[in-house]
Computed example of a mutant assay.
Amino acid sequence: MAAAQWRKAMNSAAAASAARGRPVLAPAPASLPMPEAPTADAWKTAWRRLDPGQLLVLVALLVFPFVASPFVTFQVGAQSLVLGMIALSLSFLAGYGGMISLAQMTVAGVAGYSLAVLGNSSSAEISLGWPWWLAVPVAIFIAVLASTLIGWLSVRTEGIYTIMITLAIGVAFYYLVLQNYSVFNGFQGLRELHPPKLLGLDWRSSIPFYGLSLACALAAYGLVCHVVRTPFGIALQGIRDNPRRMSALGYSVVSHRVAAYALSGLIAAVGGVLLAWYNALISPGSVGTSWLINILVIAVLGGVRHPVGAFLGALVFVLLQTFAIDLIDRERFNLVIGGVFLAIVLFSPDGLLGLWARLAARLRPARAMRTSNQRRQP
């Protein structure tokens, strides 16, 4: 059932109840409305909804690797898209589910380590040598299971307790891979993780890897935009706003939240596979406490309530991380990132997109006044 049909049915039931003079609760679904896979009609509808500005951004993303240097394409463009996908999984949980998880990089790390153990790496005695077309789906499946388990453990809490549980899980995974040498190769990690060579292309070179990252990022963005308009997404937002009322209406709050964790785990897992290929390694440093916090910083920078904000925040973070060294000492470039983060949080709690919306709202009356004055002039 489409989201519009679902809302129409609920409104019709409420109107009929009011006409009879007695209140009736909206009927609870017989089963949990799982996220619907985007159909061909859904993709066509999403394409029609694109405004000229979004089309311009899409064209710019497609043209970008052909006008930028290989370093900028790979180091800035591809890395921003990969980190943006992992931050998007957090934005989906926080913006539409009201759940802040610090374990999204942990889920991505589970996917990366699973890929390294199941596929090929520098440690032949550890890696099983599976073909990529089998290792990648299994690695993503393992990461989704891990995300579902994390959700099952944490959704029964709220606020600071959810943050602490997910942080504890992330720290536990970090020490697990750091101290285990027989499976994860300890602090050295697993190296020489390369994407497969298909169609005669080296997919780790700048333009092919950027194209692969862009395709995955657009798919993840489209999936989130589609899911939030489905009955499942609408129910999830209702649970975010008032879980007690949704529970009284018959919706399973825990089931919806765990399903949201599973979906976010899918997005983070794909980002984790791409991140392992981008770095050509997976190590404890990739899933350390600093990166658990960095994903939260990226999501907040762009705006947690906007799916595109994750990619905007990732772009700002990568630019600062790449070029802040030219402005300040290498050991202190995190000070610049922290200062920018603090400034954005103080002046715009909704991130850069919220700041842009506020500026646009202020400029709109002034523009309208200038237009009105020009019309009055003879």
Rank of each mutant, 00 (worst) to 15 (best):
N180Y: 11
L212E: 00
H194V: 03
D202P: 03
L198F: 13
Q179D: 12
G200R: 08
V224T: 10
N185Y: 08
N185K: 10
Q188C: 00
L178I: 02
C216H: 04
A217Y: 09
Q188N: 07
C225Y: 04
A220W: 07
L190H: 09
R229I: 08
Y221M: 13
F184E: 08
R204L: 01
P195Q: 03
L212A: 12
P195D: 07
G211C: 11
W203E: 00
R229W: 06
L218H: 07
L178N: 12
Y181C: 00
P195F: 02
V224C: 08
V224Q: 07
L178Q: 11
P195K: 00
L190G: 07
V224R: 06
F187C: 00
L198Y: 07
R191M: 14
V228F: 00
G186C: 07
P208R: 13
R204G: 01
L193I: 15
G186T: 03
F184W: 11
C225K: 12
A215M: 15
G189F: 07
L190M: 15
L212H: 00
Y210T: 01
C216E: 05
A220I: 09
L193E: 01
D202L: 01
L190T: 06
P195G: 04
Y210H: 02
V183L: 15
G189P: 11
L193A: 00
A220P: 09
A219C: 13
L223N: 10
H194S: 04
Q188A: 04
L223P: 11
P208A: 14
L212Y: 00
R229Y: 05
V183N: 01
Q188H: 02
S182A: 12
A220C: 15
P195V: 03
W203T: 04
L218Y: 09
N180Q: 15
A217C: 09
S206L: 10
Y181N: 02
A217N: 10
P196S: 05
L193T: 01
L212V: 14
A220Q: 10
K197A: 09
C225A: 14
F184N: 08
R229E: 14
V177H: 11
P195T: 05
F187R: 05
A217D: 09
L218T: 10
Y181L: 01
N180A: 13
R191Q: 14
L223G: 12
A217G: 12
Q179K: 13
R229P: 10
L223R: 10
R204S: 05
P195Y: 03
N180I: 13
G222V: 11
C225L: 13
G222D: 11
H226M: 09
F184D: 09
F187D: 11
H194K: 03
L201F: 06
E192M: 05
L193F: 01
D202M: 01
L214V: 14
C216K: 05
